[in-house]
Structures are given as C-alpha cells and as structure tokens.
Simulated assay, not measured.
Amino acid sequence: MIERITKIREREGMTPSKFAEAIGIQRSAMSHILNGRNNVSLDVLIKILERFTYVDSDWLLFGKGEMIREHVLTQPDLFQNTAINPSEGQAALEYRKETRVDTPVNNTKMPVVEQIIQQETNAKKVSKIMIFYSDNTFDTFISEKDKKE
C-alpha cells in the first residue's frame, strides 16, 4: 500500500509534506506511514480517495486493477467542447485583440498583457468581474454599458 500511495504522490508531483497537507493529515503521520512505522488507517485511505477522485479504491486498497478509475477515462470533461475539440454545429468564432493597461492595485503595477481572445459571436457578455485579494478586500468591475442602463 505504501508503494501505491507513493505512486499517487509522484503522479501529483508532490513531496510527502505537500501530499499530507493535500489530504489533511499531519506531516509526521505521512512520514510514519511512508517509513513503515505506522499502518495506513481507514481514515487516511478515505481522505486520499476523496482528494484524488480519479484513484480506483480497489487498486488503492488491494492492488487490483489500474490506478485510474475506468469511468474517469471515458467521462467527458469541461474542455471537450472547445475550439481545439469542436462539437458539431459549433457557433462561428471571432478573434479580437485585447490590451490591458497598467493600473495600480494595492500600490503595485500590473503588467500590460496583450493576448488574442477567441470568442463566440453569440456568447454571453460579461457584466461584472470581482477580484478577491488575500487581505480579504475586493474590487468590482462593472461593464460601462451596464452602468448606463
């Protein structure tokens, strides 16, 4: 079981301490498990399965089958229906160039960003954007058109 936990940790690219933090256990507990000092508890196994939902429980518990659950491989994802993977009858796309100007945010300058944005011509329009900062403050940006209405 230690080897299987190590495979999950390595697949995620996490150190043992980051893995412990990700599943919500003490770093020392993870160290004891990986060193063979303590057996893996049911609580730890459940936390692993809840955090890494792609892991097959039979594989983790008994070493049977594959690490990744079968339905995870076949389940569609949010990005399946994008311009890279278009669906049939997808709306026409338009391209526009967007430039963001430096604006001071908390006394720091944000870099100018230029990017090409792909947008559906019949897409919904953004009316409000909220940015939350680590000091529990936020800024709200409302479209000029929405302010006038």
Rank of each mutant, 00 (worst) to 15 (best):
I117D: 02
N35D: 13
F132D: 11
N85M: 11
V55H: 08
V40S: 09
N85A: 14
R96D: 05
Q75N: 07
G13P: 06
A29V: 11
L93Y: 07
N39Y: 07
K47T: 00
S87A: 15
M30N: 05
L34Y: 03
F52V: 03
V126H: 04
S31E: 06
I25N: 07
E70D: 15
S87F: 12
I117S: 06
L34Q: 14
K64P: 03
M1E: 01
M67Q: 01
D77E: 05
L49N: 06
V105Q: 06
N106H: 11
K148S: 06
Q80N: 14
N85E: 07
I131R: 12
P76H: 02
I25C: 14
E94F: 08
I46H: 08
V72E: 12
N106L: 12
I117N: 04
K147L: 07
H32A: 10
E21F: 08
R96A: 01
R96K: 15
K145V: 05
F141D: 09
D102L: 08
L45M: 11
M14R: 09
L61H: 12
S127V: 01
A29D: 05
M130W: 00
T140F: 05
E88N: 14
A83Q: 13
P104Q: 15
G89H: 11
L78W: 09
N39S: 07
E88F: 09
A83F: 03
E114L: 02
I2P: 03
V112E: 05
S31T: 10
K124Y: 07
E94A: 04
D146Q: 05
S41K: 11
M1S: 12
R37E: 08
Q90R: 11
K47Y: 08
V55P: 01
M30F: 01
H71D: 14
E10V: 14
K124C: 11
I129S: 10
M110C: 02
M67K: 00
T137A: 08
H32E: 15
K97N: 12
N81S: 12
A22F: 00
R37V: 12
I84R: 13
N35A: 05
N35H: 08
N81H: 14
I2M: 13
G24Q: 10
E10F: 15
P86F: 02
I84M: 13
M67C: 00
T15W: 07
E3W: 13
I129Q: 15
N106R: 15
E114Q: 09
N81V: 00
K145G: 06
P76S: 01
A20D: 03
L42H: 06
E120C: 10
K64W: 06
L73M: 02
N85P: 01
A92I: 14
V40A: 12
N39F: 01
I68V: 15
E88H: 12
K109V: 11
E114Y: 03
V101L: 09
V113Q: 01
M14C: 02
D58F: 02
